Simulated assay, not measured.
Amino acid sequence: MPSKKHRPEEIIGKLREAEVVLAQGATTAEACRRIAVSEQTYYRWRKEYGGLKTDQARRMKDLEKENVRLRRAISDLTLDKLILQEAARGNF
C-alpha cells in the first residue's frame, strides 16, 4: 500500500482527534484506528508535532525545506571552491 503524505495541518487535526478519543477513555490502539494511522506513526507525530499549533507546524516545515536548500547550496559552493583550488595548484 503506498504511503500517503499528510500535511502538517492534517497531522495536527488527527492528533487532536486522537486526544479527544483518549480523553474519553479509549486505548491508544483504538484512537489510532479511529484516525487511520499505525501506533508508530501516532507516536512519531506526537513527538514531532505535539503541542504545536497549525501555523507553527507549517512554518517549521517551511524552515526545514529552506534549510535543506541552503545546505545543498553550501555543499555545491564548497565543491566548486575545492575544484578551483586544485586547478589553481595545477594538480589535475
Rank of each mutant, 00 (worst) to 15 (best):
W45H: 03
E9L: 05
K53I: 03
F92L: 14
I11T: 08
G51Q: 06
E30D: 10
R46Y: 11
E10Y: 03
V20M: 06
E39I: 02
V37P: 01
Q24C: 08
A29G: 04
K4M: 12
L22I: 01
E10A: 07
E30P: 00
R69N: 13
P2Y: 07
R59L: 15
K14T: 00
Y49R: 02
P2D: 13
R58I: 15
A36R: 13
R71C: 07
M1N: 11
L82T: 06
L84K: 15
R7G: 00
F92T: 09
T28E: 14
A36D: 15
A36M: 11
N91D: 13
I12G: 00
V37L: 02
T41E: 14
E66L: 14
R72E: 12
K61S: 03
R34A: 05
D55Y: 14
M60P: 00
Y43G: 01
L84M: 12
A31M: 02
W45K: 02
R7Q: 11
P2G: 11
G13L: 07
R89Y: 01
E64H: 05
V20P: 00
I74D: 06
T28V: 14
E30K: 05
W45S: 03
E86V: 05
T54Q: 11
I83L: 12
A73Y: 09
A29C: 06
E39V: 04
T28S: 03
N67A: 09
P8R: 03
N91F: 09
A18G: 00
G90Y: 04
R7N: 04
L15G: 02
M1G: 15
D80F: 05
L22T: 02
A87R: 13
V21W: 00
L84T: 10
V37E: 07
E48V: 07
V37Y: 07
A57M: 02
E19F: 04
T54I: 13
Y43V: 05
V21M: 01
